[in-house]
Design a protein around this nucleic acid. Sequence first.
DNA 1: CCCCTGACACTTA
DNA 2: ATAAGTGCCAGGG
Length: 92
Amino acid sequence: MRKERLKSYSKFAARVYAVAAKIPKGKTMTYAEVARAAGSPRAYRAVGNILSKNYNPKIPCHRVVRSDGQAGGYNRGGWTGKEKKLRSEDAL
DNA sequence: CCCCTGACACTTA
DNA sequence: ATAAGTGCCAGGG
């Protein structure tokens, strides 16, 4: 049984969710930007970590990309074929 | 408190 | 351009 995440996330995590959910359509944010908006510009690592542990359906993780502009991992490595094309143009 | 893990970023070879 | 190493931060056990 996987660990139940419940709402045990800290303020930082909640901030990350808020920021990620705020990403407008046709736009992409890097983990660094999200971490910065979350309050810790150096916590881009924690952002990815929390995002992966606490995945929300309202959080378009595929819009969150790396500094290279390359997407990281959606759904813990589970990409949907359509999403792949979508994130190519980002729902353009 | 200590150790491990993780969907990153940056530098050097 | 690619690979490997290092540094950063937060969460969970």
